[in-house]
Amino acid sequence: MKEALEGFAAGILTESGNEEAIEQVKEAVALMEIAVEKKDHKLFVESNNRFHKAILDGASNSKLGYFYNLLLNQIPYNGYVYLSIDVPNRLGESLKEHQLILEAILSGDREAAEKTMRMHVKKSAMGLKKGIAKKLYQDNTN
């Protein structure tokens, strides 16, 4: 569900060309780059939140925002992001995915923006599964 909602939001933002929201997306990616360079997971998670919020807000679709918030309020989202980026190489991969989403938005190609966002959410979910497995393994060996 998150994949569909966020993909749709990225497509809408791209088509609308909302400059203020796109500027916020750029700023979030710049902060993510600093976070990866410094290996600062807290800054990365905060920047990730800013990135996704800017896209959702920039889509200016109240129904989309409602369903997205309804979904996120049911899960410990930040905890999931931390687990995902703790997987080896996932922090850098996640940054690259966010950069590709930004590039697609800037290109004005709605389909590419939606597709790259959906791919990112899917890869994040796979990272989360690995992160959960890693944590369970660590907990069971201690």
Rank of each mutant, 00 (worst) to 15 (best):
A59S: 11
V81T: 07
F44R: 03
Y66H: 12
Q138E: 15
V25N: 04
D40W: 05
R50K: 12
K42E: 15
N142G: 15
V81K: 05
F44C: 02
E20H: 10
A28Q: 01
S60W: 14
Y66G: 11
K122P: 03
M1W: 10
G7M: 03
D57G: 09
G7H: 01
L56G: 03
A9I: 04
E97M: 08
N78V: 08
T14H: 00
P88Y: 02
L102R: 03
A125K: 14
L83V: 00
S62N: 13
D40N: 12
G7A: 05
Y68D: 10
P76M: 09
T14V: 03
S94T: 07
S62W: 14
E93M: 09
M32S: 01
S62G: 12
E37R: 12
L136C: 14
L106F: 00
E114M: 10
I34E: 15
G65C: 05
E111S: 11
I101W: 04
L100Y: 10
H120G: 02
A10S: 09
D86Y: 09
I85D: 02
Y66I: 11
N61E: 11
T141P: 13
E97D: 11
L136W: 12
V87D: 04
E97I: 04
S124K: 09
L70D: 08
A35T: 05
V87C: 02
S84L: 06
I101H: 02
A35P: 05
S60Y: 14
S16C: 09
I132M: 10
E103F: 03
P76F: 07
K134Y: 14
E37A: 13
D57K: 11
S94L: 06
Y82S: 03
K96D: 11
D86N: 14
G79F: 02
T116V: 08
K129I: 12
K122V: 09
Y68F: 09
K129E: 13
S60Q: 15
K122C: 05
D139S: 13
K115V: 08
I12C: 00
A113D: 00
H41V: 13
K38D: 15
I22E: 01
Q24C: 06
F44M: 02
G79T: 02
I75S: 06
D40S: 05
L102F: 01
I85L: 04
G108E: 00
P76N: 10
G79Y: 01
I75R: 07
A113S: 05
V25R: 00
